[in-house]
Computed example of a mutant assay.
Amino acid sequence: MDAAEKKRKMIIGGVLVATVIAAALVEVDDEPEFHVPEALQSGRTAQDRAKKTESNAAQLDVSKLGQRKFSPVAGELFASTTWAPKRAVIDDHEEEQQAIRMAQAARASAPPAPTAPPLQFKYAGKAIADNETWVFLSQSGENLITKIGAKINDTYRLDSVNDNAITMTYLPLNIKQTLTINNQIAGTFR
């Protein structure tokens, strides 16, 4: 240790010892004393204090306060809470009526039953060979050749052919549709 450090430690030690000695010499009172000046004590007599107490009691008439009333809107202070809406108490007749109204609303708002799209085919003709009937159709500029019982684009099935109409089944919904034959373009090939 160098001389400056020794000097600093000696000063700190001396201050510590002086603090301990000063703390031991100071008397510790358990209860502090408060001195009320005599000028204040002489101005206040027992009669003055009694008058002030009576006047304060007259100002604060507790019977006029009344009993505290709680608002029913506040509800129960420590009730459990839930996010689910409360269900109203309904008698059986009202419950039936409500169920009927809900069913009617559901039917009214239910989407319409699915239907098959309109046929996009045009009849071009038919051919009969070896007791099989082949039908020529066109759809969006594409020519199709099919026979009875065969599928068309995996969406339709050709069910029957006669001189006036072709019956097909829309396979996704299993709905039968009829394509009328115009004798203008159509022909029969044998």
Rank of each mutant, 00 (worst) to 15 (best):
T45W: 00
I90K: 15
K151Q: 07
P32G: 12
A150P: 02
K147A: 10
P114H: 04
L137S: 03
F189L: 11
A88M: 07
V20I: 14
T180C: 02
N153K: 06
E54T: 06
S55Y: 03
Q177Y: 01
V36W: 03
D159K: 14
A3Y: 09
Q41N: 10
R8L: 13
T178S: 12
K64P: 04
K9I: 13
V135R: 01
K51N: 05
I100R: 15
A18P: 09
M168G: 00
E31L: 06
I145K: 12
V73E: 15
Q184S: 07
N182M: 08
T155Y: 01
A150C: 01
K6C: 05
T167N: 11
N153A: 11
L60E: 01
V89H: 12
V36R: 04
T45P: 00
S109E: 11
A58F: 02
T146Y: 00
T19I: 08
M10Y: 05
P112W: 02
A186S: 15
T133V: 15
I166V: 15
G13S: 14
A110Y: 01
V135D: 03
P172W: 03
E27Y: 07
A4V: 13
M102T: 05
A150E: 14
I166T: 09
L119D: 07
L144C: 00
L137K: 02
A150H: 03
R190A: 10
K86D: 11
Q177M: 07
P111S: 10
L179M: 14
P37C: 01
P112M: 08
Y123S: 06
N131M: 02
T45S: 13
D130R: 15
Y123I: 01
A50V: 04
A88N: 13
Q41L: 11
T180L: 09
L173H: 02
G66A: 08
F34L: 08
G14L: 15
P37G: 05
N56L: 14
Q98G: 10
D159Q: 11
L60M: 05
N131W: 04
E142Y: 01
G66D: 11
E132K: 05
A105I: 07
D30C: 00
W83F: 12
I166E: 04
K9C: 08
D91F: 14
G14Y: 05
L144S: 02
K7Y: 06
E96D: 06
V20F: 14
N183F: 03
V28N: 04
A22E: 06
K69A: 09
D48C: 00
V135G: 02
E54R: 10
V135F: 02
G141Y: 08
V15D: 11
T133C: 09
A108V: 04
V161G: 05
S63T: 13
A84N: 14
M102Q: 12
V20D: 02
D91M: 10
R190T: 10
P114I: 11
M10T: 12
L171D: 09
F78S: 11
D2K: 12
A74G: 07
I11Y: 08
W83H: 04
L65V: 06
I100P: 00
S138Q: 05
G66E: 12
G125R: 03
I21A: 13
A79Q: 14
G149Y: 02
R44E: 03
K147L: 01
G14V: 09
R8N: 08
V161N: 11
Y123Q: 02
L137D: 00
P85I: 01
A88Y: 07
K151F: 01
R101K: 15
N143F: 05
Q98E: 12
Y123D: 12
N183T: 13
